[in-house]
Write a protein that binds this DNA or RNA. Sequence first.
DNA 1: GTCTATAACAAGATAGAC
DNA 2: GTCTATCTTGTTATAGAC
Lengths: 231, 231
Amino acid sequence: MKADADIAGEKPGDMPEEQAGAPGGRIRQATMAHILAAAEQVFAEAGYAGASMSRLAKAAGLPKPNLHYYFGSKQALYTAVLQNILALWLDAADDILPERDPAEALSAYIRAKMAHSRDRPHASKVFANEVLRGAPELHSYLGLELRRIVDEKALVLEGWAKRGLMDAVDARHLFFAMWAMTQTYADFDVQIRAVLGVRELDDAAFETARLTVTRLVLRGCGVTMKEAACP
Amino acid sequence: MKADADIAGEKPGDMPEEQAGAPGGRIRQATMAHILAAAEQVFAEAGYAGASMSRLAKAAGLPKPNLHYYFGSKQALYTAVLQNILALWLDAADDILPERDPAEALSAYIRAKMAHSRDRPHASKVFANEVLRGAPELHSYLGLELRRIVDEKALVLEGWAKRGLMDAVDARHLFFAMWAMTQTYADFDVQIRAVLGVRELDDAAFETARLTVTRLVLRGCGVTMKEAACP
DNA sequence: GTCTATAACAAGATAGAC
DNA sequence: GTCTATCTTGTTATAGAC
């Protein structure tokens, strides 16, 4: 087995027995994390239907039955991959807080989302594939948890607008725009690379992308850019 | 067979025999257009791998072998659907011309793209699915035809910037942003409806979306909005 | 041109030896 | 815990009657 199984961020040698939500020994957890990491990539490239168990197994470097042994079914493995991604997704909006400066908070949010697109493109693609299919696994998450977060953050933006710190922009549609503009660098990377005529999106390309998105959002919200966009 | 087979925009009773690129009689063309319309929807909802021939056949209201009779293979049917979509995709940027006013031209472009997302969401989703998979069928299109168009339009924007009509924004990344913001209303509609807590995106929602996107782009480019954004 | 019947194969899942 | 061999089902595609 390969050694890059630390995707779930488990602390090695922490608990001697088990833990809530992650039963089993350390080797079991490591194997499962390894399978999840490989599966995320395959599901990202092929979608749910296009990812066969044999392909998933080959990507993990294991025989097919082992995947069934650990996750039961393809469906369950896919759900586990999605769950792994949502945990990553949720804490991105932590910068949007009432007491912060709008320009800085929005810049930080865009920076975090762009970093996600760069560092975890597979996660973004799996999520995109799922939503494109009609989000059969994420319906409740989108309608409950995500909706609650957006409602909460929309209040923050409306508060900023009332205090004259930014224009009164529709907060929800602003979020849709920020999600779309940042995630497109992960989901549609093939198209972007083709149009730019480059083999890879390097640091400079991502920096230009981040600055462009930040500029559109900050100016669109009527907040001054200052040096918040430049690290 | 249902009567909504006029998607390809064929002129009924035009030519008695054949035409380049569309051989066969009128009923043949009508049947093929009907299959293509149904297939677009199924490919959009299920992706390439998730769309089985039986499902495609059921959606078209025909037995499976008929689809093979007309298109040969699932692959060929899919390619035909994509080809149909590209024709639609290409003429959206017709508004970006040097002699036009930036605010009006960009507003018109965003309006056209939003209208596409509203009127042909399935087309957008098929395209998104294809690019997510790595664009195996569209690699040459993206790297040649689309790239050429974007290069051409980028020159127009740079011309506007030199004449002081707008700020010097990276034109290519601005296009990525406009594509992402507008297409998200087709591709991620499930997520948007869930967050907004509505069953359907109605006229008002699309108008708010369009105004938000237009605002971000025009202000981000430093062009005055005037009434160009309002019909 | 249309459709029933079926071939050839790959899918998800499991039994059972190790 | 691990993996070979296999079962069942659904897949694309086609043969051949109508």
